[in-house]
Amino acid sequence: MGASSGPRLSGIQKQVLSLYREFLRVARSKSGEDRHQIESIVSAEFRHNSNEIDCKNFIYIEYLLRRGKKQLEQLKSPDIVGLSYLNVGSSQPKKT
C-alpha cells in the first residue's frame, strides 16, 4: 500500500472513494433512465460534500460514510429501481 505511486490518500479518503465506486457499480445494475438519475444524484452528493465539509471533520465524514453504506445496501436490492432527492430546509415549509 505504501508503495502506491498515487497521491497519498488517508484511510478515510480511500473509504469515501471506495464507497463512491460501489455506488457507481450499483448504478450500473439499474436500467437506463434510473441509472442516469442515480449517477447524477450520487455524483452531485459526493461532490457537494467534498466541497462543503471540512476535511478535518472526521466525525461528520464518518457519519456520512455510515449513512452512505446503508443507502448503498438498500440500493443494492433489485426491488429498488431509483433514487430521488428531497430537499428539506432550503424551501422550508411552514411548520404546522
Binding site: P7, Q13, L17, Y20, R21, L24, R25, F46, R47, S50
Partner: peptide, 20 residues
C-alpha cells in the same frame, strides 16, 4: 489526470468509465 483537472472523484469516474 491531475494535470487535466481531475480530482480523486473524477478519477474514480474515469476508471469506472474505462471498465465499462
Amino acid at each position: 489526470f491531475v494535470s487535466l483537472g481531475a480530482d480523486s472523484l473524477d478519477t474514480v469516474e474515469i476508471v469506472m468509465g474505462l471498465e465499462e
